[in-house]
Simulated scan of single mutants.
Amino acid sequence: MFVGIETTNILVLGSGDNLHQQVLASFPLCDVTEEDLTQNPQFCKLLATLTQHVDRSGLTVPLKADLERAEQKLQSQKRQWLRSESLHRGLQEMIQEFYVRKHNSTVPPDQNMFYETMERCLRVTRCAKQLDPSSTTSQDQPSVLGLTPQQVLQLLPSEKNVQRMKQALPRQLERRLKEKCLSLVSYYQPEWENESEGLKTNKLSHLSTLLDKDKKRTELLKETCRENTVLLQRQTQLYLSELIKCIQLLQTLILDHRLKIQTDLDGKKLDYFEGKCELVLQKIKTEMVEIQLDTYSLDTISAHRKIREKLESELTACKAEKQALEMKLSSFEILGKAFEALADEYCRLRQEIDMKNWALKELTKYNEK
């Protein structure tokens, strides 16, 4: 029975690509692509079923209703707080402006009494409220300086002055709020600033409607912006995936093409470098010949060549002699240490013979003299 209901819900949404598009539109915050839904049809059916119970933000229908009621209650309490806060700040601004006027010029006594009474009432009421324990806690709060709210309330002005202040306050406050509202109208539409006060007052009555329209239009633009952002992210992911595939294909083509022509390219490079080396060698030889011609004459060069040939022939002969002696020395080394001792003895005897021959020659020279 449940399977039949689920199938009916999915058929109501759509089928095929249309179903995928509707599922993606129903879950804009879900990072899922159409390809994922195509590869996972059961997951797509699950999401299509969830669209009957979940909104676009992912909240269930009962939770969404509770959230809306909580938001309405919060907005109501916020409006009440803003109303009282606006009145309190308006009164504070009126007092500040009064003291500025009093500092710059002389004010009538009735105004002086009115504003002083209002300021004193605000201060006393605020202090009494601070001393009054909160209604949200059952614990007793310690008193400040041992004072109670009743003791502070005794500092209020006389009842007569308070009544006079209360009678004049609505008119003054209404005038103050009207000026601020007209300033708000001028700020909202600067072209209305030069119009008459009656026309501004008439437009002020429609200001809330205009602000609601602007707010709705702004929210609609924000929602459109979020949808466009999600769409842009999906398109970017799709674009990047396609781009990666193209890059991989290009890499494959480049590697295949390079492997095919690499041999010919290496051969051509080798021929080029061989020719370049040969050219450099010929240039070096030419430079050497030019240096020789600039340094020596033809006769000197021919003499140097003969000397070089003779020295090379003598060097060749010395190398051959050296090689022969090395061969003899290697053959003597084969005889071992016994032959080494005989060779040392032979060297010693040769040295003695040479010394005696030298002494004999010297003696002969001395006798001849």
Results as ranks from 00 to 15, higher is better:
T209Q: 05
Y188Q: 14
S196L: 00
E191K: 04
R164L: 13
P142I: 04
E197K: 02
L177W: 05
S196G: 01
E179S: 10
P149G: 05
P157V: 05
V162N: 10
Q150H: 12
K180P: 04
Q172D: 07
R175E: 12
K203C: 10
S205C: 11
K178V: 09
N194V: 05
P170T: 10
P142H: 10
N202I: 09
K180V: 11
Q150I: 03
N194R: 09
L207D: 06
M165A: 07
Q172W: 09
S143P: 01
Q154F: 08
L204N: 11
E159M: 11
P149Y: 07
Q189F: 09
L182S: 04
E159R: 11
R171K: 14
L184C: 05
C181D: 07
S196Q: 04
P170D: 15
S183G: 06
R171V: 14
A168C: 02
L145P: 06
L147H: 13
G198F: 08
E197V: 00
K166G: 11
G198N: 12
K180H: 08
R176C: 11
V162E: 12
P190W: 06
E159L: 08
T209L: 03
S183Q: 08
K166T: 13
L177F: 09
T201W: 10
P170V: 05
R171H: 14
R164P: 11
L156G: 00
L173E: 13
R171G: 14
P190S: 01
N161S: 14
L199C: 05
G198I: 03
K160H: 10
S208P: 03
N194E: 13
L173F: 13
N161A: 09
T201K: 14
E195G: 01
L184P: 02
N194L: 02
Q167G: 04
Q154G: 03
L153A: 01
T148E: 15
K178W: 10
Q150P: 01
W192K: 01
L155Q: 08
